[in-house]
Design a protein around this nucleic acid. Structure first.
Lengths: 170, 170
DNA sequence: ATCAATGCAAATAATTTGCACGTCC
DNA sequence: GGACGTGCAAATTATTTGCATTGAT
């Protein structure tokens, strides 16, 4: 289970050594925390997790460290409509997600077909490096909620009509 | 050329009438301004354009109006790493863009193959409604700049070496 | 005349920056 | 011991909100 954590730790260590940067406890704590989520996480959630594990880190360090991880491609940043989310990338190499526009729920998509299509796309004076696909829609549980809500409202309408008939009789 | 502007104006008019909303000068001024850009624009740029055309609008109204246009699908919002950008969508129905990570330059991509791939993708308990693809990389002019910079630096190195040789002789 | 929509300014949220201090090499 | 990285707090930026005023219907 911690295989991935060990690997990314090695990647970070190697990078820091090669660039004469310091192997601080904070950097490894943040990396470990980031790789404890199995989907998108916010700065807030990351901060909270670090605090819970009794390793609080300043906000500035969080931002600095996440920026470092982004250049190392250990983390990506998604600026969604309901806020900025981060994601550990070393495991899931898919850059394709479905996102519910109601509740914000995110799921990873099988990206092979998309990746092929991107490979077959012509770029205009451009050297491509990565891509990100977001499919927006409504997840099944939000759909169910909406249906229930609609039913409730139409029942209310029927009830109101009946009341009106009764009232009119008076 | 103004065909599109006329069409979107009609769409807005119709929507406002059907929903008993007011046809304010501001709303049409913002719509017209938004459709004067032929690519992404920022709130700042939109505000500036409106000001130049002697129709200044408050920031709150700008945000409100753009939100309205988004629900009307007349405008989309892209939250990129270098800030929030908006885009008039009635003309270009492509949701695929290439984005230079150095200068931020954006170009539209031919989206047919991508759209097909999305159509052939399985979604997990999800009703899809739209999608957005961002291909990140480096545009040719930024590549050229980097090459020039690299050349400059290596020439400097050679020059330094020569100087060192001369200095060592002293 | 009414009430939705605007403008303004203040509030909030998100991120960056400058500087003093601590700690990794 | 020295410089890099961190923490803290202030600064900056982006967006939202509340309220008084204006203007479309």
């Amino acid at each position: 289970m911690d295989d991935v954590k060990v690997e990314v730790k090695q990647i970070l260590t190697q990078y820091l050594e090669q660039n004469n940067m310091r192997k601080t406890v904070e950097r490894f704590a943040v990396l470990n925390a980031a790789y404890s989520f199995d989907t998108f996480f916010t700065i807030e959630e990351l901060n909270e997790l670090l605090g819970r594990n009794s390793f609080p880190v300043s906000r500035a360090t969080l931002y600095n460290t996440l920026k470092l991880f982004q250049t190392l491609q250990l983390v990506v940043c998604h600026r969604l409509n309901d806020g900025t989310k981060y994601e550990a990338t070393y495991t899931h190499r898919s850059n394709c997600h479905q996102i519910c526009t109601i509740c914000g729920k995110v799921s990873e998509l099988d990206s092979r077909k998309i990746a092929d299509a991107v490979d077959n796309t012509r770029f205009k004076r451009f050297r491509r490096e990565s891509f990100s696909l977001y499919v927006y829609g409504i997840c099944s549980s939000c759909q169910a909620k909406m249906t229930r809500e609609r039913n409730r409202k139409s029942k209310e309408k029927v009830a109101n009509k009946k009341t009106n008939i009764i009232n009119n009789r008076k």
